[in-house]
């Protein structure tokens, strides 16, 4: 591909420059969100209502959470196109257990464990079977999607017990999905930034030969990171499945693309080796802010998707201009 992998951490420069250059994409997206809020709220002040902020921030929380795991996968130079179907399968598992009368912690724990187990198999196929991750996950996408319909026959799950509906809870007035999103993002960020395990992910994605030479067990690490990604998808599933009082046995169309887009727009390099999960969480919030914002300013519903596409593209281009300029400065 056409961009050279940038090193994860650049040489020391002055504090601010270093901060801007290390978190450039996160800053671009945060600015985009602020500009969007400013413009939309000038046109329609109701946009800043507390309820609307809750809707925007919690609406895509499950996407933000799933994008955390996806970012880890992409940072190691892999990809997972089956995560949408996985979430659909895990939601059905969770809902079935809840309706069958198991304690809620079983219904919440099961998707996390099942997600880890399923994706550990995917990781093993990638690491030990030497199959590119896009191939394995394209295959898994078919298997999970078909399998879900085969097993459920298309019946929806209703009559969920009220205490199962975690995503509807609030703590200190803030919806549970927001807590999950923030806590998961912060933990994942710190863990990837400071733990040996987390830093090894960047090493694998940046230069796998060097990582191997440094003694990182690459194969085992890949299986582990896929399993962690599966577990995080399980957490996303809980938010997804407990938001309403019904669980659909189909998966929202193109969910995997939305999650991948959040990760890569958030600054995770598709070539591996760079990026943070803060960017992907901000990107998920940006998407739901764009979706709601365009409704608030009365963009014709027919043109909504075109404008969303254009805004995404503009964000990408601004970031690329910034990076290109930086590369030029660095090489001078």
């Amino acid at each position: 591909m056409s961009v050279e992998a940038a090193p994860a951490f650049r040489p020391r420069r002055s504090g601010l420059t270093r901060f801007v250059s290390a978190y450039g994409q996160e800053i671009v997206i945060a600015c985009a969100i602020l500009i969007l809020f400013a413009v939309v709220s000038l046109i329609n002040p109701r946009f800043l209502g507390a309820n609307n902020l809750n809707t925007i921030i919690s609406g895509n929380a499950y996407i933000a959470v799933a994008a955390i795991g996806m970012s880890m996968i992409i940072i190691t130079g892999n990809i997972d196109v089956s995560v949408g179907a996985l979430i659909g399968v895990l939601a059905t598992i969770s809902g079935t257990l809840a309706v069958a009368g198991y304690p809620v912690w079983v219904a919440w724990g099961a998707p996390i464990l099942a997600g880890a187990a399923i994706n550990a198999v995917v990781g093993a196929l990638v690491a030990y079977g030497k199959i590119p991750s896009i191939v394995v996950t394209l295959g898994m996408l078919s298997i999970l999607r078909g399998g879900l319909v085969s097993i459920t026959g298309g019946a929806w799950i209703s009559n969920l017990p009220p205490d199962f509906l975690l995503a509807q809870q609030r703590l200190l007035g803030v919806p549970a999905p927001v807590w999950f999103m923030v806590i998961c993002t912060v933990i994942a960020f710190l863990w990837m930034r400071y733990s040996a395990f987390g830093r090894s992910l960047y090493a694998i994605g940046g230069n796998s030969e060097a990582a191997r030479a440094a003694g990182i067990p690459i194969e085992r690490r890949i299986v582990e990171v896929f399993a962690i990604h599966g577990a995080i998808a399980g957490v996303a599933t809980i938010l997804f499945a407990t938001q309403l009082q019904i669980i659909q046995s189909t998966v929202p169309p193109n969910l995997e693309l939305t999650i991948i887009t959040a990760s890569v727009i958030g600054g995770v390099s598709i070539l591996g080796g760079t990026g943070t999960v803060i960017g992907s969480t901000l990107a998920a919030i940006l998407f739901s802010a764009i979706g709601a914002g365009l409704i608030f300013v009365n963009v014709s519903a027919y043109w909504l998707r075109a404008v969303i596409g254009l805004l995404i593209l503009i964000t990408v281009l601004i970031d690329m201009l910034r990076r290109n300029r930086e590369t030029r400065q660095a090489s001078r």
């Binding site: 309403l244 929202p252 409704i295």
Partner: peptide
Amino acid sequence: EDNILSFNQANT
């Protein structure tokens, strides 16, 4: 045909 999106849109 997405129930979470329907939920978000109705909220908006």
